[in-house]
Design a protein around this nucleic acid. Structure first.
Lengths: 238, 238
DNA sequence: GTGGCAAGAATAGTGTTACCAATGATGTCC
DNA sequence: GGACATCATTGGTAACACTATTCTTGCCAC
């Protein structure tokens, strides 16, 4: 799914523990590590710790200075769009909060992306989008949840790609994580609501037919509906 | 401006050359470095090269495997929201393309952010927003371009913060870069247009008065206008 | 021969250790 | 209260052992 963050190197294993711990707020902002402490704690060599810290630093989770050590930064300064950081948050206790903020982000991005797709998509990719939508609908009606999720992700991914804006494309991972997360935590109506399926079809057809306003309005209905569903499930985590 | 990426460490200096070079497309996707080659090329030790590569890897610019080397990934796989990557692009030849895609992103995000701010902003921060807007207007009318830019950034930053959504907050850096970039490359009307200033005031007052729809509509006018201005200046780079 | 597979060699990243240099926070002296 | 010594901690170098992955080779079956 993600590329190479999963390679079983030592510094990746250190990262996979240290990163989530910091993200979960187990260390106050301002808390300082020393490399030596981390070396002992994880039983690894200096090089490994340094490389792990370097990555955390590039995510702006920590800063590192001589004589002071490695200091945890306040969360307002983190690179919250970093895919790895998002995954750590979704895996931890902050998952509902993260899911909510990401859903609001989707609600902002996807309607303009759909409009852009209706304007910019190359001819040859318009009809295939409708086909993906149809297969998704079929899977939903048959109750095949795995295929439905896979095709739902594929549908939204294609729209972001067809928008022609690299920043929108860069959010495909986020959308995939949100949809997967909603399914995993049973925040997805089963079977999918008929109205939602129809709205997806409207989006696909409007993009195919080059109707930006229609595509945007239909997409707004989709993500707005999702937003409400999530707000209803709003409760303190756990 | 950014935190600690500017500390004059050796690996940062290597990063500051290698990163922009890759981002500028000086190496085909698939191109492989070896650590040894980089060591010699930059005249630094292995540790330094390894840490620089580790950062590039976390940005998904490269992947690193034994027996193969360090391989440049195709640009669709890059973490395009990484602030450092954005800065590299804005500094290089891709700056107009990057500016356009970021402007479209702003156009998607800021109106919903303004609406959210009108709903969620704490009482005590509403009036100050209007004050910032007034000082910005004054600076604009006096022709004080530096102060105007600074206050314009401050204005948009506050709205994103007041939205209460951490993902929106995470885009403050992007907005700052875009506004600064537009000023530097003289894509900003001077003096600022009176209508634009009035729209900013409408946004601030609508947020103060808790009117999400008004705030959203006014913000949409602001970013829509900007979008047009940028499209007019659309020419192949250089 | 040709295709497929297994064993082994070659090659580059990965991990360890030891040591010295540079930095900047902290306290001290005047 | 400003200049300066101090010292802990990161930053950087070097040399080497380990290990994963790819490529080659050679065998075997068809």
């Amino acid at each position: 799914m993600s590329g190479d963050a999963d390679r079983h190197t030592l510094h990746n294993r250190v990262l996979a523990v240290l990163g989530p711990a910091i993200v979960a707020g187990e260390y106050e902002p301002g808390h300082v590590f020393t490399l030596e402490r981390l070396e002992r704690e994880y039983g690894v060599s200096r090089t490994v710790v340094r490389e792990a810290v370097r990555v955390l630093q590039s995510m702006r989770l920590v800063r590192s200075r001589p004589r002071t050590g490695v200091q945890v930064r306040p969360d307002e300064e983190w690179s919250v769009f970093d895919p790895q950081l998002i995954r750590w948050r979704l895996a931890g206790s902050g998952r509902m909060a993260q899911l909510r903020s990401l859903t609001e982000l989707r609600a902002a991005i996807e309607p303009p992306a759909a409009a852009a797709a209706a304007r910019n998509a190359p001819r040859e990719w318009r009809e295939p989008l409708v086909e993906v939508c149809e297969r998704m609908t079929a899977a939903g009606q048959e109750g095949d949840q795995d295929s439905f999720l896979r095709l739902d992700i594929e549908f939204h991914r294609r729209i972001l790609r067809l928008s022609g804006n690299e920043m929108f494309v860069g959010l495909t991972g986020v959308v995939a994580e949100v949809l997967t997360g909603r399914t995993e935590y049973h925040l997805m109506p089963r079977p999918p609501r008929a109205e939602a399926l129809r709205l997806h079809a409207h989006v696909a057809e409007a993009i195919r037919d080059g109707l930006p306003d229609v595509a945007q309005a239909a997409m707004r209905s989709i993500v707005g509906e999702v937003d409400e569903a999530l707000s209803e499930a709003a409760e303190p985590d756990r």
